[in-house]
Design a protein around this nucleic acid. Sequence first.
DNA 1: AGAGAAGCAGTAATCGGTTACTACGTTGAT
DNA 2: ATCAACGTAGTAACCGATTACTGCTTCTCT
Lengths: 354, 354
Amino acid sequence: MSRQRKQAGSRTTIRDVAAKSGVSVATVSRVLAGNYPTSEDAKKKVLAAIDELNYVMNAHARGLAGQGTRTIAILVEQVTSPFYAAVAQGVEEQAAAGGRLCLICTTHGDPAQELALVNMLRDQGTDAVIIVGGITPSREYEIRMARYAESLNAVGSVLVLCGRPRLDADVPHLVVAYENEEGAYAATNYILSKGHEDVIFVGGVEGISTTDDRVRGFRRAMQERGLPTEGRVLLGSHREAFGRTAVQERLARGRDFTAIVAYNDHIAAGALLAVRQAGLRVPEDVSVIGYDDSLLASNLTPALTSVAVPAQELGRTAVRRALEHQDGDVRDPSQVVTLATHVVVRDSVARPRA
Amino acid sequence: MSRQRKQAGSRTTIRDVAAKSGVSVATVSRVLAGNYPTSEDAKKKVLAAIDELNYVMNAHARGLAGQGTRTIAILVEQVTSPFYAAVAQGVEEQAAAGGRLCLICTTHGDPAQELALVNMLRDQGTDAVIIVGGITPSREYEIRMARYAESLNAVGSVLVLCGRPRLDADVPHLVVAYENEEGAYAATNYILSKGHEDVIFVGGVEGISTTDDRVRGFRRAMQERGLPTEGRVLLGSHREAFGRTAVQERLARGRDFTAIVAYNDHIAAGALLAVRQAGLRVPEDVSVIGYDDSLLASNLTPALTSVAVPAQELGRTAVRRALEHQDGDVRDPSQVVTLATHVVVRDSVARPRA
DNA sequence: AGAGAAGCAGTAATCGGTTACTACGTTGAT
DNA sequence: ATCAACGTAGTAACCGATTACTGCTTCTCT
């Protein structure tokens, strides 16, 4: 209500620019868009007037007239996680490269909030909605998300899922994934190649796709060598605190492992703490491998060996595909692009003793 | 270009809803806005039609017609910094509480980009533009930013500066700060209270307000005890790498200090590395104190004593004040709200030996 | 020199909401 | 019965950009 407009100066419009430079509004618009032949003379005059009047285009007017919003939205659980921050960074960069603004929204891991945001974003006319992170699959969720994907498409927008499986429904959407199962498989194999046989997997939330995938990779590597995984997968959360308590409790029951494959670097950090608290050393007594290769990994003591996920690249790829798709030149939209992960070797893994 | 509209179904507009429910577009708009008396009957019919047609309002049309966007923008250097991420988190939470979306933009520390973004954001109809982080003051920048602040106000939007001094110009804008000088003063005093006398300050960028403030706090604490600060302030960047090399070089020239006050936790992490590389121990040989109390601090070895900055609270306060201001009930807009910082004691500071 | 093409600029319709203004029907007071 | 007041609904003029369509030059080719 306190919003008063049309005061004294009001707003500088394309018409003011046209008047000042002595050309028509159409010409001004064309100079701005640059998609129509315009004489050098007119161009110069318009640019001068724009500069002098300090004119900025009204995004709403442009959006309304059919140019799209030129924004891209990204939905993450929380921005304070280094992994999501890095993905967001990638999205932001690529969006900027494509002349788009980047809208970052947080869902706090709540599927309902996620749906509400997608719904809202669609109204805003975002060019693309990128959802990052694993999800607990549920029938109802799938159905509603498919409806939204459909309506996003209806308004010329694109839904991109990052690090999460395709929707079941036959609705156009893009998927950019990174190796979860493969990464955990590689991490476990790296540990096993050092001679470990008693390995546990710690962290992650049961039922969330990312967790399930990593656990699967762990199991596969173990089973290929005929090692047991029964009772060796400790799920709970992806927070550092869980890593600490889970390992503490396990150690209290007796040390029946020589290596830990952590769900992520936070868990690994917690595990490190618990191991040290128990008077054991890393990697001499217990080896630990993390996941994500976040900022944390290189700063822990010992520096953490971790699976590097190309987080920024993930964000960039998501945007790139979304924009390509908007322009209609994605070969196969239903194809899942999967980015590779690799083990970054530091100091937290060694051969087991004896 | 590939954006084809007016296809088959086209877009469901308020007119479709009006037609379906047998009322006028004005009535539909009023039901949606809820700011005009409408009969229960009409309301019910409109709502039913909206539901049935799966109608969503076009944000551009609404924005163009002068209703504001209900979004809040935050400008930070980069989202991957834990500090900025935490502020952004706070902004996002409070914005959501106020029914606003949160637009996060990155400036990469470039004042020109910052200005360009503010300029652009104003026309998006953002309710508030929050700029976080210190800045190199420059006359030209001040003038342009003041102009933008003015034009933001003209369209009913608010400019909020976070952790940066007020604009010189007499232009309405809000400032939420946190103690920089006081924090560094407290950190230094904490170190001094342990008996240290040879202390150096490492990190930060010359000329940026945040750095200058922290250095001032350091100097004040030292001078109050009659200790020299000449040649004891090492500026360069706020990255970990700088912390490492700066301390390495200093140590190479001889160990003339027993404690380090770091510009932030990243610098502290680098310093820790350099100290250890030189065969010295923390805190036995050298004490280190950080700033920001980021995630990093508690995970370093030894756990880093650091100055806690209420980053999330900073974001929340910024949004709260902005929305209050829009509603016209901020008592004194020119008042700078300053949030307190405090030293979080961990294991990286000890008495100097002998 | 005249016809046709090409290059550039202008007019005005349009996007989808909001809202000032007008109009209508009902109620209540005189 | 008449008129004022009130509550509700409708008409149409905006908001500021885009762009189809039209028209005027200028240039080229015969």
